[in-house]
Simulated scan of single mutants.
Amino acid sequence: MGATRGTARAVGAAAAVAVLAGCSTPPAPAPAPGPTAAVRPAKPRQAPPGGPSADGPPPAAPSASAGETCPAGGVRVRQRGGDSAMGVRILAVELVNCSAGPYELEGHPQIRLLDKKRTPIEAEVRHGSGGIAGGVPNMDGPAERLVLQPGRTASFGMLWRNLVTDPSVPAAEGWAVEVTPKPGAPTVTAELTDSVDLGNTGRLGVSAWAEDTG
């Protein structure tokens, strides 16, 4: 009888251990260490001056027409071409009516040459060939009244000799020309790809405005 009770207790204890073993779960892992300070939202990075934002797409490139904005005076000027022979130079400057209405011209433009540093060059500007060279076509034509419609062009020519007559006088070389198309009009500037190399003659002939018919 005593042995039977002892056996029963042993069986009951074993069953209890088995039940506890089946119902128990493994211990949870230790939590990760928390932050030692409050987390602040990250600020967007500042782009360097003139550069795109680091947090967004770069700005769109300017269109090709951005540099063709019509100046306040309603016209643009630019070099159109040049020629040289026997020390005589000719360079044409074109004016474009970029305004929405007609633009009137008459006579000769007022011009001033600028060197590479954009310093004005002292030069005597003469109407026509001005005795600089003879027999040059279109330089001594009559001054006429022109009315340019929007988009139309007119031009004038510059004539000079590339001579150095006095070695003690520095040679002048113009790389831009300021043009006042008519009295009272705003001045516009044309950059030159071919220089006006006056030497030290100090003389420049300018033709009257002529409308381009092409």
Rank of each mutant, 00 (worst) to 15 (best):
A3G: 07
V179H: 06
E211A: 09
L159K: 00
L95R: 01
L159A: 00
G82Q: 08
R145Y: 12
R40D: 10
V164R: 01
S99I: 04
K182C: 07
P52H: 07
P49H: 09
G56D: 02
A8T: 12
E173I: 08
C23W: 05
G107M: 08
A15H: 11
T36Y: 14
V77S: 01
V206M: 05
T69E: 02
D197H: 05
V177Q: 09
A92S: 14
G101H: 14
R126S: 02
R76V: 07
N162L: 15
K182F: 11
A190H: 05
V88C: 06
V17Q: 04
R112P: 07
P41M: 04
G135R: 00
P102K: 12
V179I: 15
D140Y: 10
T69G: 00
S129G: 05
D140Q: 08
S207T: 06
A15Y: 01
L20C: 05
L204H: 06
Q149R: 15
K116F: 07
P120T: 10
P26D: 15
T153G: 06
L163K: 03
V88R: 03
S168C: 12
P181V: 09
E122N: 14
A42T: 02
A14V: 10
A15V: 01
C23E: 04
L146I: 03
A171M: 09
G12T: 11
A133I: 00
D212S: 13
G131M: 15
L95I: 03
A210M: 13
M158W: 02
L159I: 01
V136Q: 04
S53L: 00
V179M: 07
E124R: 13
L105E: 01
T189N: 06
V77R: 04
V96E: 07
S24V: 13
L20N: 01
L20F: 02
R118G: 03
G12H: 13
G202H: 11
R145E: 08
R89C: 14
D115Q: 04
M1T: 12
L148E: 08
A15W: 01
G184W: 03
T165A: 02
V196E: 10
E106D: 14
P109W: 05
G199S: 05
S207M: 04
W160P: 03
P52Y: 09
A133W: 00
K43N: 10
G56Y: 02
H108G: 14
R78K: 00
Q149P: 10
V11D: 10
L20T: 05
L113E: 10
V125K: 06
T69K: 00
R203K: 06
A54S: 10
D166W: 02
E178S: 14
N162F: 09
E173N: 09
V179K: 12
E104T: 04
G202C: 13
A133N: 01
P137Y: 08
A28S: 02
G67Y: 14
A92D: 11
A172C: 10
G12M: 05
C98W: 06
P142I: 15
A21H: 08
E191M: 13
